[in-house]
Amino acid sequence: MSRSYGRYALLRAAQALIVILLAYVGTFLVISVLPGDPITNMLRDPQNGLTDDEIQQVVAHYGLDKPVVIQLILSLGRFVTGDLGFSLQSNLPVSQLLGDALPSTLTLAGTALLLSVVIAVVIAYGVQYLPSRWARGVLRSVPSLFLSVPNFVVGLILIEIFAFRLHVFTTIDPDSAAATLFAALTLAIPVSAPLAEVLIANLDHESRQEYALVARSRGLSQARLFARHLVKPSMLPAVAMIALIVGELLGGAVITETIFGRDGLGTVVQKAVTSQDVPVLQAVVSLAAVVFVTVNLLADLASPLLDPRLDARPRRKAAPERDATPERELEVSA
């Protein structure tokens, strides 16, 4: 498998690279197609107090006097070499702006990702194995509750209870560990819901499989059956989902950061949008594309390693020569 897997990995990585470049080109074209080139508009704003010469210099620096195709090539060239340009608003390098904001957002999103997986696994385990049937039923409906409560409501409730009433954390220091944990919880709760749903459904399915019965006939306890047999096959489809969740977390981070008063990517995006700070926007969109594509790439690369049934080779027309095994007839239909 190793040689064919190498070929598969290379192919997927190349595809990922192309997607990132296309996302960059797409963003660039959308911005340049928009009427009233925002950069020149802003420069010409009398409040900035720039002279015509200075404007010419900046315009030439950004290559705005050249045709769009040339601009695109120049911009793409800078992007590939890691030069993201300067913010129009603060005149700071965009890479520095992002660099300052990123750690806070990554901490938040990373913690939230971890929490959402933990919450989902705990819910799914409880739904399978809680001794009380009533409790199992209640737990089963928790994911839909999580899904239907908006992010900002969860955040406000958590702040009200844990910051103002119980004083577990203070809103004055939003970067403290406790505050970060609650911000991450806010972000994790709605995101954990679909993950929990998938896990519950897969565990339902897997625990009804014959192999689970056979494993039990060998005297495995319920906890061992769960840990050794059921978790892995149930988690496999969730791996692809986790990749999607990361995208959701980045979007959700903007709102959560606002509620908890954190300085992060959300704040940068908000400022850039209100002030039409094109280089920053372009960089943030590209960054989001890079993160999203990378996580998906990792999920794709991990799947064949985790699931031996998946063939990593590029799909060819397979010979339809295997006779399907007859499905067994259920003795008792419920």
Partner: peptide, 24 residues
């Protein structure tokens, strides 16, 4: 009863293709 499973009482299932964990 669990200690008896497998040791005293073995089980051979109907469809062997689904009777083993596919990812182990």
């Amino acid at each position: 009863f669990r200690p008896l499973r497998g040791r005293l009482l073995g089980y051979v299932p109907q469809d062997p293709s689904s009777a083993l964990n596919p990812v182990r």
